[in-house]
């Protein structure tokens, strides 16, 4: 958090101009400076993601515990807060097994395809006014393109493992993720229609001037909520890794730190989806009294809380229910939502 507070100085203020001048005075080409600035940004964002993931995993277990009348982690640190740190250390020193039947290179590459896009999405997420690594004019499209890369990653992981459970999990993951991708994109599209821009920053500003899009797009928000939870493979849509039937789905054969990367990606994606939901529907960083960054975090965690609450309340769906729901209910509703939104905006 303290690191993120230091970011405004880097993004816009005096320090940036002075550092740039210093580089030019030293006779270094400007691209070195551009790369250094980007490296500082990515380092801050990586720290932000890792800290939040540590907290999210603890929160999930603690919240799940209390929702189900248990205590959750209590022993490691105050309120069990250090539980995730202990788990991370444990997983770092665990033996790494790559099964003999696995396709070795694909097996190694799959976690990279999962995590790297999850990090790259944060290039366009606005933390506050001016607090954004880069405001791309195609922001929403960029997010959609990169979040779609989780599908090839899970398919690669499942196929390369050489295990029946993994392959079945990968099949399910592929079918489920492509089915829910369409309503998700359509829900985002309706927001773009309202805002008239693909830039996430413009979308926040449009909400600052008008009202939050959750009020103008209640249907879109609900579609986004359901589709995003499905895209995250979370209960009630956790069929790709259904423990009771598929052991652990696509990551059955992963162990040690490679497994940890998938775990990290899962929670990083939860954070990303929540941040995007907060930006598109809840007004992003805008809000009274509190600093914009705090508003951004609060709104993000509202969505996180809903996702966790749903997870510990609902049972898992069957595959046919899952597919029916996506194609026969969510997709028509999302299409209709886009047409109606377009009519209101255009007429």
């Amino acid at each position: 958090m303290a690191l993120a507070l230091a970011a405004p100085a880097l993004a816009g203020g005096n320090l940036y101009t002075r550092a740039q001048q210093l580089f030019l005075d030293l006779g270094l080409p400007p691209w070195i400076f551009a790369i250094l600035v980007a490296a500082v940004k990515v380092a801050l964002i990586l720290v932000f993601i890792l800290l939040n993931v540590l907290f999210l995993i603890w929160l999930e277990r603690k919240l799940g515990g209390h929702l189900q009348n248990r205590l959750g982690p209590v022993y490691t640190g105050p309120f069990g807060l250090l539980q995730t740190v202990a788990d991370a250390l444990k997983v770092l020193v665990k033996e790494d097994v790559i099964p003999a039947a696995a396709d070795r290179w694909a097996f190694i590459v799959a976690p990279f395809i999962a995590f790297v896009p999850a990090l790259m999405i944060w290039l366009v997420v606005p933390f506050g006014p001016g607090l954004q690594a880069r405001d791309l004019s195609i922001g929403v499209l960029y997010v959609a393109a990169l979040s779609g890369l989780i599908i090839p990653s899970l398919l690669t992981a499942g196929w390369s493992s050489g295990s029946k459970w993994s392959l079945l999990g990968a099949f399910r993951a592929g079918a489920q993720l492509i089915s829910y991708e369409v309503p998700l994109l359509l829900a985002q599209l309706a927001v773009v229609v309202w805002a008239g821009s693909l830039s996430l920053n413009d979308i926040v500003r449009a909400q600052q001037q008008g009202t939050w899009f959750i009020l103008l797009q209640p249907v879109g928000f609900i579609v986004y909520l359901i589709a995003a939870i499905a895209e995250l493979n979370r209960t009630p849509f956790d069929l790709p890794e259904a423990e009771s039937e598929l052991v652990a789905g696509f990551n059955t054969e992963y162990s040690g730190f490679r497994f940890a990367i998938f775990f990290l990606t899962e929670y990083a994606n939860l954070l990303t989806s929540s941040a995007i939901a907060a930006t598109l529907f809840l007004g992003g960083w805008s809000g009274p009294w509190l600093p914009p960054f705090v508003w951004f975090l609060l709104k993000t965690y509202v969505f996180v809380f809903i996702a966790m609450w749903v997870r510990f309340t609902l049972p898992r769906l069957r595959v046919d229910q899952l597919m029916n729901f996506a194609w026969k209910l969510l997709l028509p509703v999302a299409l209709l939502n886009v047409v109606v939104t377009g009519a209101i905006v255009a007429l």
Partner: peptide, 30 residues
């Protein structure tokens, strides 16, 4: 500059995982 940023983010993601895996390789039994 936008493409430079994307390339740096891509590189940083790969580097972070590679370093963590290397660290884990030095620490874990085999």
């Amino acid at each position: 500059n936008a493409y430079t940023d994307m390339a740096v983010f891509l590189g940083a993601g790969i580097l972070f995982l590679a370093v963590s895996l290397l660290l884990s390789r030095l620490l874990r039994p085999h």
